[in-house]
Amino acid sequence: MRAAGSGPPRRRRVWGYVTPLLLLAPSLIFYGVFVLQPLVKSVELSFTDWDGAAPTLNYVGLDNYAQLIGDDRFLLALGRTVIWSALYIALAVGGGLLFAALITELRRGQALVRALAFLPHALALAVTGVIWAQLFHPNIGAINAGLEAMHLGGLAQAWLGEPLLALPSVAVSSGWHAYGFYMVIFLASMQTIDPQLYEAAAIDGAGGWHRFRHVTLPGLHNATTVVLTLATINSLKGFDAVWAMTGGGPAYATEIVAVYIWRVAFQVGELGLAAAASVILTIIVLAFTIGFNRNRDRRAV
């Protein structure tokens, strides 16, 4: 909060904004030219049937949106995106939280374990996809070979070839990539929880689970909000790993909205339609972020 004081004269007040705005200007130029401008253009294109080649824009009103809402392929892609987000959050955020709770109890080696668990996140998600496509490979993959070595060969699958397994399999690879990232945030937040709370709980005879449920989790409220917001946004944007592992297949089984947009825009060339899909995706992400954070804020009070 700004300290209350005597108001400076009006001229100085206006003048005083010059330096801050100059400091802001470079970032605003980048952001305006390469993010906000194309965003507005996307909205405009979503009302046209532009194919990427026509020299003028032909406005078709809400046709693209109507087409999307009536298109099973798009609706299925939306549904898959929800499942994908849920899987991603369960694996990456759930895994990160669990692992943070485990290693916060370690007295030595915590920094090392934390650094190692974070290592996958240093790789590009696309590189992760390439690696996991091999791990899931039906003939040479370590997962099937590992199952066979444990005499569980019956469980071996063509992971990325089964429509029902392909999306969860890609989610596992993304979870591997991301869980360390969320773990670091949780861990940092756990270290700010007052140790006396744990001591009090211990005196009450609380077990490990009880301490986690009633001390750790409430203490992580803010971190959890940040992490869930970040993770949901990241998952809704998800593209790299899916593209590198399955390209949206088999038979659309991993075609989430981000992949749908890419395919419709750059393979089929229906740019207006794809722009409309991207606008819908944006609205969903935005609505979620605002709604979720408001809800969390209210519950925190």
Partner: peptide, 24 residues
């Protein structure tokens, strides 16, 4: 106000976008 304010980037960018039309 937050909701309302989120519209602002769109207005800002509308001005910027007036120039470069793809394909145009």
């Amino acid at each position: 106000r937050r909701l309302l304010l989120l519209c602002i980037p769109i207005v800002v960018a509308a001005a910027l976008a007036a120039c470069g039309a793809p394909g145009g």
